[in-house]
Design a binder for these strands. Structure first.
Lengths: 145, 145
DNA sequence: CTCAGTGCAAAGGATTTGCATGCCG
DNA sequence: CGGCATGCAAATCCTTTGCACTGAG
């Protein structure tokens, strides 16, 4: 998805929720797009000095509510954020247990498909309404080995 | 694994780390075993009034360090804990986006196997040392539908 | 005696909120 | 003009820590 398409999409999501695509929100989307991986609040602020902590949190929450951004909980103490999957594409995360850093990866389509099928079955058994799934690999990244 | 086997296993893990299997730690293991799903600190305390908040946190951390308990980060604000997989068995979670509650489920062995293989490949490509993986289904539980 | 384990109260730290100001529609 | 958006500072709340006490070995 091109830069312009992403902005269009986000703007549309915000509009539908009666929210503006304000300057801070634009900056957040830009930072997340350029990063290409989930970022913590601090990493976001470090990427763009004009951003203020409370505004970042506030606007990430707004973007999350309208479905433009996804919050990721890792086992370290910080929440991380990335652009939602319908803006980027379905993918998974490799998480470093030592430094908490995250990289993206994808699964071969056939594996993803059979996995998805099994998950549907499991959810059905639990009479659970399924939205999505997430699959993370936990380990140690190159620089922490 | 039977009750006695679990206690034996946990005791051994603690012993190896030079720690005792103290009364509070026994109670924590019992509560987690009976729950059969990940619990928050508050849920744990609610299950056993004799437990004190700070001791619960402190001992869960000890149990996590020796590998008897696993900490699970969800997207709501509370950390959850369950007995480690080598004590129970490899499994996954169905997480309710509304109330944050979690249920356990397992995947058919053949799916799990081919998934595991793909993950190894993906990790190799990222020159990542792989420890484990986690797979969660996100959706809405029966009582929140 | 020693020292890990515990409870209580206070501190820490990521995240949220109140409020006054600025700015788009 | 009206109300959302923003920055700053203060408040929240889960989690951790300091400290004195207890009990097992």
């Amino acid at each position: 998805m091109t830069n312009a398409e992403i902005n269009e999409k986000v703007a549309s999501l915000l509009r539908k929720a009666g929210q503006r695509y304000s300057p801070v929100r634009r900056r957040l989307v830009t930072v997340l797009r350029l990063a290409g991986k989930p970022l913590t609040n601090n990493q976001i602020i470090a990427s763009d000095d004009s951003l203020v902590q409370s505004s970042v949190y506030r606007n990430l929450n707004v973007l999350e509510e309208v479905g433009a951004v996804t919050r990721i909980a890792t086992n370290d103490e910080f929440a991380r954020f990335e652009l939602a999957e319908h803006i980027t594409e379905h993918h998974h995360h490799i998480i470093c247990n030592t430094c908490g850093d995250i990289a993206d990866f994808s699964l071969p389509p056939n594996i993803e498909k059979s996995l998805d099928l099994s998950l549907r079955k499991a959810a059905k058994k639990a009479s659970f309404d399924i939205d999505n799934h997430r699959l993370d690999v936990l380990g140690t990244c190159t620089s922490c080995q």
